[in-house]
Design a protein around this nucleic acid. Structure first.
Length: 422
DNA sequence: TCTGGGGTCCTAGGACCC
DNA sequence: TCTGGGGTCCTAGGACCC
């Protein structure tokens, strides 16, 4: 007998930022005022990454522009993100969760599932439910006391219902969604609140007169399948509370890897574009080598200043993890597809990954071997002396960063462990 | 200086082969 | 050449999640 807990940090980035600032002696708790964590507007990354509850009351949404958010709330406090800090907060939370169960599945930086096993003496029923709630309340209180931030814990018979439960009322709440509670607690909700029903699917469903999760649950699955194809069957099952996926701590195998960046200025010439591709290839290929994979497909994504996004991909003759080969291919793709319009955003993605073992053994070609050794040497130097220790000469008199993409480049600052709070 | 960055999965349609 | 049908591979695009 077990239950699944879903632990969700309330306004994660903003709460973590608030706690850190209080620790540093700041007198204002960001959670109690209209405040958001947002990217740099000067670098054109100016969107809301997380918002406080008072900010939410002004109608501010995650993902909207800081400009838009300020229109809604002129006195809004905006603070920049510190991803390294957030990683540490996340680690500290998972460490506490581990005191309650050996099996934890990290779902994202601020969400995790916990497989809560009841003692064998407990059989299904009120006693078991009450025991699970009591444990969740203790977990929530311990996180709050030791780390200073609040979480919602959802309890259910499976991951889907646990996750739906954690979304109910916020912050600092434990909610249950046991099977017998589904008709009362989940079915009346608007269909777009169901996991995996996004804007597009909700719009289609409304076109078929399905407005609530209960209406979706009661619909004919064959019809839903016909309308929405395979994802339709999935959301029909979700609407009925059905989900047989297990909590697992085995990491998902990585299928693709990529980096992209909204550029500080519009790019209008080929040479600059190629240099940016190199900066993106450096980061992406380095990550590829780190996980010991080679890529067979290279893809270049472009977004124009008009926000039109398109991409172009191709399959390589043989898999590679060599930065310069990936860059060469990226430039070729770029030249074939760029329409010469100003570019706001560029990206490089690698997919169809395979092991690099065979590749390493078959380095017969001298020039490949040299590239390979160069990449390895640079990787080792960057690991030891930091990502800025060594970079290509073409960047030395350029305003373009030699490595682009990735969010954890500012991890040189070490933050104190959150567990030192209180 | 109004629109981020990291992923996964699915489907449509064309090319190509038998 | 007024050409059937099945299967595979590939690319582009769109949906969803955080």
């Amino acid at each position: 007998m077990f239950y699944v807990f879903h632990v969700d940090v309330n306004s994660a980035y903003l709460s973590w930022e608030a706690v850190y600032r209080l620790q540093q002696g700041d007198s204002i708790d960001l959670r109690t005022i209209p405040a958001v964590v947002g990217g740099s507007e000067a670098d054109r990354h100016g969107i809301v990454l997380a918002k406080s509850i008072p900010a939410k009351k002004f109608g501010i949404h995650t993902g909207e522009t800081l400009y838009g958010a300020r229109q809604k709330c002129p006195g809004l406090v905006v603070v920049p993100p510190r991803y390294g800090l957030y990683m540490q907060c996340s680690e500290a939370m998972v460490a506490i969760m581990n005191q309650y169960a050996p099996l934890i599945q990290r779902y994202s930086i601020d969400e995790a599932f916990l497989h809560y096993q009841l003692p064998p003496s407990m059989i299904q029923g009120q006693g078991a439910e009450a025991a699970a709630v009591a444990a969740a309340l203790r977990l929530k209180a311990q996180i709050r006391q030791e780390l200073g931030f609040t979480v919602n814990v959802g309890i259910g018979p499976n991951k889907l219902l646990a996750k739906m439960a954690s979304e109910f009322q916020k912050p600092d709440q434990v909610h249950t969604l046991f099977r017998h509670e589904v008709p009362e607690k989940m079915w009346p909700l608007p269909v777009q609140e169901l996991f995996f029903v996004g804007r597009a699917t909700a719009r289609k469903l409304r076109g078929y007169n399905i407005f609530t999760i209960g209406q979706l649950a009661a619909a004919d699955p064959q019809l839903i399948h016909c309308w929405l194809k395979k994802p339709g069957l999935l959301i029909w099952q979700y609407a009925n509370g059905l989900d047989d996926s297990r909590v697992t701590d085995e990491p998902m195998p990585i299928k693709s890897i990529g980096n992209s960046s909204t550029l500080p200025f519009d790019v209008t010439d080929r040479a600059t574009a190629h240099q940016i591709l190199l900066a993106l290839c450096e980061t992406t290929a380095m990550r590829l080598r780190k996980i010991r994979r080679c890529a067979q497909v290279v893809s270049v994504t472009l977004r124009s200043s008009e926000l039109i996004t398109y991409r172009h991909q191709c399959r390589l003759a043989s898999p590679t993890d060599v930065t310069s080969l990936i860059w060469q291919e990226s430039c070729r793709l770029f030249d074939n597809v760029w329409k010469k319009e100003p570019l706001r955003h560029m990206g490089v993605h690698l997919s169809d990954l395979c092991s690099n073992e065979y590749y390493q053994l078959s380095l017969f070609h001298q020039h490949l071997e040299k590239h390979h050794q160069l990449d390895r040497t640079i990787d080792a130097l960057r690991l030891r002396f930091g990502t800025r220790a060594v970079f290509r000469g073409c960047f030395s008199h350029s305003s373009i960063q030699p490595l682009m993409g990735g969010v954890l480049q500012d991890q040189e600052v070490d933050y104190p462990m959150m567990a030192s709070y209180l």
